[in-house]
Write a protein that binds this DNA or RNA. Sequence first.
DNA 1: CGGCGGTATGTCAACGTTAACTTGTGGCAA
DNA 2: TTGCCACAAGTTAACGTTGACATACCGCCG
Lengths: 339, 339
Amino acid sequence: MKTVAAHAGVSAQTVSRVLRGTGYVSEATRARVLASVAAVGYRPNAVGRSLRATRTPMVGLLITDITNPFYATLHKSTEAVFRERGLTLMLLNSDDDPATERTQLDLVSSYRPSGLLVAPAVHSTLTTEDLAGFGAAVLVSRTLPGLAVPSVVTNEPEAMGEATRALLDAGHRRIVAVLGPRDASTTLRRESGYRDAVRAAGAEPIVRYTDQTGPGARAAIRRALQADPGLTAAVGFNAPVTEGILRGLRDEGLECPRDVSVVGFTDAPWMSFYPPPITVVGQPVAAMGELAARLLLDVLDGKPVTPGLHVVPSVLLRRESVAPPRPRPHDEKRTPCTS
Amino acid sequence: MKTVAAHAGVSAQTVSRVLRGTGYVSEATRARVLASVAAVGYRPNAVGRSLRATRTPMVGLLITDITNPFYATLHKSTEAVFRERGLTLMLLNSDDDPATERTQLDLVSSYRPSGLLVAPAVHSTLTTEDLAGFGAAVLVSRTLPGLAVPSVVTNEPEAMGEATRALLDAGHRRIVAVLGPRDASTTLRRESGYRDAVRAAGAEPIVRYTDQTGPGARAAIRRALQADPGLTAAVGFNAPVTEGILRGLRDEGLECPRDVSVVGFTDAPWMSFYPPPITVVGQPVAAMGELAARLLLDVLDGKPVTPGLHVVPSVLLRRESVAPPRPRPHDEKRTPCTS
DNA sequence: CGGCGGTATGTCAACGTTAACTTGTGGCAA
DNA sequence: TTGCCACAAGTTAACGTTGACATACCGCCG
């Protein structure tokens, strides 16, 4: 900047004024400065500016795994909102590990960002004061008990109930729910929706907990099918789990939806053209991201924001993976193909 | 920092020394400073540090769309390498638009990052001097003609040739290649592999260009099938295109691999469990990301790095979407299902 | 003709950190 | 005793930017 100032024969302050368009600058000087900027090849330095401003025009987005399409979409939708406000999004991976989550939070806080968006890890240990250091913080996708922070979630219990009822209405009675880790908040919320729906129909809940990965779910569904020959339907906790269920079914020589009906939670690109297309609870990911981003901006703008749950409704996408139940084939010699 | 210094009764410099573990500090002072750090709740300010250092411990990663699993994996793999070196990765989306690409580049350059990783947009207008402002720059996935910068790519021509030969060896002669935009470097490289293989087998190349999206490919394959009833196989340019091909096949009432064999380029999670599992050229995405990251670090460390192409070999994952050709059914009354 | 408001520009200081230098102590070999 | 070295601090300045304040010129009203 000093270089530009010297080149144009003005003070650095005048250059700053021209560049930001504030204060009084004569037309002649403005032109001269602009020419010098181009001549010298000056690029503004955001670091200096941030230091001066004590906060950086940046928002942190802390998620568990960018490889998960849910979070990729979340990044995309929030980034769009922030970009039009001149804020840069800083992506951070926690690998779903509380320790890494802390480390990454420390890291981003050292850049003095304007705000923070967090999708907490499963066994997150974050407290209100961890988040206090940030100008504004908003949780997405997962809540943390006892945190006085706005949280954007879906109506998981209701949506899970609706998904379960789709199976019940088709006539199914023995429906297994393949869930995530036993004590994760998402598991709790989705499990309750499932249980309520099943009980309301006078049936018995059947539940399996997993590490919410495809392989984990694949093993879990196989065990469930072997343990209970009466099973005719399954509910998947998330996209990878739903994939695991489908694989497990095939391992056991069963066909969907002929032998076992399947509904999932969280849509994925392949689900709409997989044969059969999978009936699934579509989370409005982009809408959630946008809402979260706007809430954060509201907090930044000093507008009043309710610090509790902000619910974005999910929709059940009825496709073709649900059929009326029929008794499972019982041939003892069936050899499961292990691949 | 001054607050900590005052609290511990030392100078700011001493606090700095303690925190960075450099220079001479007595054990007593060190303990006292550490206690004060905790008491005051001091968090280091990366902005101040960066200003002092004239460059930020950050690397930009400019890609076209984080929603694409290829780039998500690229982010994950490079992030891991950089993290262990204490560098933060700054993700930037170009939306595959040259103008946005420029804007984002300007933005990241204003933070004075240590380096830059770019997967250029299709019609990128980047020049060597655009990249000169960054300490180090490395291209990934796509090359740019005339750029004296290290580029990490796969052996696309060879891999595409191998994929094509998988079809030729099965007996196919009329194979359509559904490609990306006509003049993209990726299209050029993959197209040449396809053409060479087809010609070597004495067959005729059949080519369709698309916008490299699922819907675009879906329309393209349908047009190709309608125009040429002799087609018995297709090659997909990338994962979305391969998906589009599969959808288009189904639209036309054709089954894979019975009626039409398919091979793809770039693996996707669903391809290994789709019925049939898709034979595909698996790009070693993680390996490419890692190599690119390490090349960047080498440049940063002043080690000599070849400014040309760095090739990471792809592997053909032979699955079940290729079968011997059989004449396509020719019933004129077949009604394509438009969904 | 003194003073006031509008316009145009410059100077100074501060944001938080750290490289480079300076100051001061004690121990120990020459 | 002198001089040097290892150690343990402190002081200064600079990174790039901008808010706050100061300076200076102009025209015009009273």
